[in-house]
Design a binder for these strands. Structure first.
Length: 812
DNA sequence: GCGGATCAC
DNA sequence: TATGGTGATCCGC
């Protein structure tokens, strides 16, 4: 909170040094002694870099301190409530795991640069060759960078199962082809490696990590171990063998070794691939036990997205491993943003994206350069101009134009500043960009006058690129402007119920109508990955759910747009639900959400949110999980469902006399590992009888159609969801709605807590003030500042005059 | 939309 | 020995 922006440049070094030392003495988070010493040494030598590092570290410590203070104010009741709320998510997500499991394989390549001279061109060429090989296994693989790629070889494995041996046979090169253009030493090295290839491939997985009861092996009639002939090698049909084959081929072709991770999702695959670096592979079998086993002691830092700072903050809470992360989920939900929390929960449950999202559109482009101190303003301006020219060239290569210009300045003390300016129409030429950048730079120079800016880095960035729709819209709006009748615009809205206000939509909003149908139509080539996946929609690996954000915004829209003059009535073409009084933007998001499917947080909201949002969620679930079941179920029906289910459950648990403890019941204890409640197996399950038999539901996925190549039109076969069986009470639940089902399970799991809460609630608020209880839950999630006890009174975000889906109502 | 921070590669 | 460049995202404002 106390952002120290003093500018005593002269004393700064001294000051910072003192601050740094004091901070360390305070021993806030116990820096490594040796490290401190080193830093101090460097600092006393006047390294501005380390002084700055110290400063940053201090900031992090401050953040941690604030967090701890927040934590200290959390009451046990708040924690229990949070606990309750996080359980739903556990179930919803766990199902996601199951659905994601089958045969999804990601692979990560880690070439050994030491073998090949660090010549970029060559590296690129090698990278291409690599990639050629990868395309054999998954034509739609996702290349993250030159040296990293994810593959989904589900389909390949399916076909591979029936391949004759000679299709899986590869000859070991004798080294003849490697002689050209490589220093002798390298050839030797490579040759040496070649000789070791078979043993390497066999031994790179420690014996105790060898998959047990591998479904692939179990189902296959033959042994999957590769057979070595004189100079050829035959790979088996399992995932493991296929990946060995890939690595073998890569090494043969490029002389580079690669490491690989085989796992049910990209997050795990990535962690896996690091396990046996640089020339090995590791597999996590596609079942929950294997995933949980792997996750159990995994330090969170290993997970992509958890960096130095996050690690330190979580460590302050005693969280180092994924298990601990899971155990503290309730606390985390109170201390971190919803997005972060969601991410944490993902990690702790071993969940990740199973989609290989196509490369998203670029969001920005920039150039920056470090140099020795530059203090003269005229030099700075001309450098800026130079950078703008370079940027303009790069932009031109990709034909990009943008509206936001950002300059970045790092002074000799390593303090970084960015300054941005957004203009109304796109720019792209060096002159246009410089005109804006120059102003930003001047402002900074003027601000410090008469002191010069002592820079060590300068950068220029362009962002706010218009998307396709924006461009089309621009065209259309011109056309529309020229056409008196303005027919072009109204045509795009023909599927929507319109109001007269439609005519007054801003061009941007109008464009979204078009964009929605365009987008969704192409997505529904029927890439079921959008339509049927049952976990949150992750378009990029390890990112938290977009759909949740959409939903959140949607709710905001629902709540705030009532009095907006842009409000309209629409009917969602997916759920056929009338969207009363929301803006077009909100509507579009709603429809997107319908198509995208449920998100973990919705369950969560079910407990605490208003009637309206709960209904949205349910609707979405229906649409999503059983596409053909999307009758217009109204809210009352849903509520009845919930009520019946919850009552059933509570009684059953009592009968069984086995109410699990709230905290200890978790995904990580395999207590309920045998249940096969609700799962959404995918098409690929067909290749794995082992799993298929366990599932009562079949939904489909088409991993291939999200790529740039024209997707194959593909209509999924839809099998209607069957009844779900609660793992706790072991009774079939008469609902196909996963949200409702999850709630039922939660209640079973948390029956004791629920009763306590109800008691509390009744004791404290005999006058039926369930609303405030309800509200607080949501406020805690969305507004960090207001989530402390007593600070949330009423939130604007909560829509008044609506029945609420409160705990009390729910449990009645 | 802006600016600082974090993260990955 | 001094400490990179590019791009993305999140959060709080």
């Amino acid at each position: 909170m106390h952002s120290t922006k003093e500018k005593n440049d002269n004393n700064k070094d001294d000051l910072l040094l003192r601050m740094g030392l004091n901070d360390n003495k305070a021993g806030m988070e116990g820096l490594d002694k040796e490290k401190i010493n080193k830093i101090i040494m460097e600092a006393t030598r006047g390294s501005k870099f380390y002084v700055n590092e110290l400063k940053k570290e201090k900031q992090v410590n401050q953040r941690i301190e604030n967090m701890m203070q927040q934590k200290a104010q959390i009451t046990s009741q708040q924690l229990r409530k949070a606990q309750l709320q996080s359980t739903s998510n556990y179930y919803a997500r766990r199902f996601g795991v199951r659905a994601a499991m089958p045969g999804f394989i990601a692979k990560r390549l880690c070439p050994q640069l030491t073998i090949v001279p660090p010549n970029f061109d060559k590296y690129q060429a090698v990278s291409r060759e690599v990639k050629e090989i990868l395309a054999d296994y998954d034509p739609n693989f996702m290349a993250m960078s030159l040296d990293e790629a994810y593959l989904n070889i589900t389909k390949h494995l399916q076909e591979r199962k029936n391949w004759p041996e000679d299709k899986r046979k590869y000859f070991i090169k004798t080294g003849n082809s490697l002689e050209n253009g490589k220093p002798g030493e390298e050839v030797n090295k490579v040759s040496e490696q070649e000789r070791y290839i078979p043993p390497l491939l066999f031994n790179d997985i420690p014996p105790d990590l060898h998959p047990q009861g591998n479904p692939f092996q179990a189902n296959s009639e033959e042994q999957n171990n590769p057979q070595i002939l004189q100079n050829a090698i035959v790979f088996g049909t399992s995932a493991e063998e296929a990946v060995k084959e890939i690595r073998f081929r890569i090494e043969q072709k490029t002389t580079l070794t690669a490491s690989a991770g085989i796992a049910p999702n990209t997050m795990l695959a990535k962690v896996c691939s690091d396990k046996n670096k640089p020339n090995g592979q590791y597999q996590i079998l596609p079942n929950r036990e294997a995933v949980m086993d792997f996750i159990k002691d995994l330090p969170i830092r290993k997970v992509s997205g958890i960096g130095k700072v996050t690690e330190k903050m979580l460590k302050a809470l005693g969280i180092i491993t994924c298990t601990e992360l899971y155990q503290q989920r309730a606390l985390l939900s109170l201390l971190f943003s919803e997005t972060s929390w969601h991410h944490f929960l993902h990690i702790s449950l071993g969940l990740g994206s199973t989609l290989l999202a196509r490369d998203g559109d670029r969001k920005s482009m920039s150039v920056e350069r470090t140099f020795s101190e530059m203090s003269k303003a005229d030099e700075q301006y001309s450098l800026c101009q130079e950078l703008c020219s370079e940027l303009a060239q790069d932009l031109q290569k990709e034909g990009l134009k943008g509206r936001t210009v950002t300059i970045k300045l790092k002074n000799v003390n390593f303090e970084v500043k960015t300054r941005a300016s957004t203009v109304s129409s796109v720019v792209s030429t060096a002159e246009e960009i410089f005109a804006i950048a120059k102003d930003l730079l001047r402002t900074e120079i003027d601000a410090d006058f008469p002191h010069p800016l002592r820079l060590r880095l300068m950068g220029v960035r362009l962002s706010s690129f218009p998307n396709e729709e924006d461009k089309k819209q621009q065209q259309r709006s011109i056309i529309g402007f020229l056409q008196a009748g303005n027919q072009a615009l109204s045509a795009t809205g023909h599927m929507l119920e319109k109001t007269d206000k439609d005519q007054f939509l801003k061009p941007l909003e109008m464009s979204q109508k078009k964009s929605f149908f365009d987008k969704k139509r192409s997505e529904r080539k029927w890439s079921q990955q959008d339509t049927f996946k049952c976990e949150a929609v992750d378009t990029q690996s390890l990112q938290t759910s977009d759909s949740f954000q959409v939903l959140k915004k949607m709710n905001e829209n629902l709540e705030t747009s009532e009095n907006s003059n842009k409000s309209q009535i629409f009917t969602c073409p997916i759920s056929f639900r009338e969207q009363g009084s929301i803006s077009l933007e909100g509507f579009n998001k709603q429809v997107d959400a319908c198509l995208d499917g449920p998100s973990i947080n919705e369950d969560h909201k079910m407990f605490s949110c208003s009637h309206a949002s709960s209904t949205e969620v349910n609707r979405k679930e229906n649409v999503h999980h059983s596409f053909s079941l999307h009758e217009k179920q109204d809210y009352e029906t849903h509520q009845k469902h919930s009520g019946i289910n919850s009552v059933d459950c509570a009684e059953l648990v009592e009968t069984k006399g086995n109410p699990p403890k709230a905290e200890s019941v978790g995904a990580l204890s395999d207590k309920h590992s045998k249940e096969e409640c609700a799962v959404f197996p995918r098409e690929s399950f067909n290749t794995e009888q082992h799993y298929q038999n366990s599932f009562s539901t079949v939904l489909l996925e088409d991993m291939g159609s999200s790529q740039q190549e024209s997707p194959q039109p593909y209509l999924p076969e839809v099998i209607i969801t069957q009844a779900l069986v609660c793992p706790i009470c072991n009774l079939e639940q008469k609902t196909s709605d996963l949200t409702l089902f999850n709630m039922h399970v939660d209640i079973c799991l948390n029956k004791d807590i629920i009763q306590e809460l109800r008691k509390d609630s009744l004791a404290n608020q005999p006058t039926k003030s369930t609303k405030s209880t309800d509200t607080s839950g949501q406020v805690q999630k969305t507004a960090r500042k207001t989530k402390r006890p007593g600070m949330y009174s009423s939130s604007k975000k909560v829509k008044p005059n609506r029945p609420r889906h409160t705990l009390d109502i729910f449990f009645k």
